[in-house]
Amino acid sequence: MNNLPATGFLRLHQIIGDKRVEPPTTAIIPVSKSTWWAGVASGRYPQPVKIGSRCTAWRVEDIRSFIEKGGVA
């Protein structure tokens, strides 16, 4: 969590990681894409922010708060 910026936004691949890119992105929250979206829909994971017509992101502060509350196993 120390490598997260103080403020700003994170895209999904930055949160759940992406092994297909070079170099691979390490997951902050190690879940699958479908698990993440199901958790967002159920309220378990933080709600996203639309920052464009086809661009969704999450506030770093919301991700930090989720992790600090024990949201990551």
Rank of each mutant, 00 (worst) to 15 (best):
M1D: 05
N2T: 05
N3A: 04
N3Y: 13
L4P: 04
L4D: 10
P5H: 06
P5E: 12
P5D: 11
T7L: 13
R11Q: 08
L12W: 07
H13G: 06
H13C: 07
Q14F: 03
I15G: 00
I15Q: 02
I16T: 04
K19I: 11
K19E: 09
R20C: 08
R20K: 13
E22C: 03
P24N: 11
T25F: 04
A27R: 00
I28N: 04
I28G: 06
I29P: 01
I29Y: 12
I29E: 01
P30A: 10
V31W: 02
S34Q: 14
S34H: 08
T35G: 10
T35W: 04
T35H: 08
T35E: 11
A38F: 02
A41K: 15
S42Q: 11
S42E: 15
G43D: 13
R44D: 08
Q47M: 15
Q47E: 14
Q47N: 12
I51G: 06
I51Q: 11
G52E: 05
G52C: 09
S53V: 03
S53I: 02
C55V: 12
C55W: 07
A57T: 04
A57F: 12
W58A: 04
W58G: 03
R59H: 12
V60R: 00
V60T: 10
E61K: 07
E61A: 14
D62H: 11
I63W: 00
I63F: 08
R64C: 03
S65L: 09
F66G: 06
I67K: 00
I67M: 12
I67P: 01
G71S: 09
V72G: 01
V72Q: 00
V72L: 11
A73C: 13
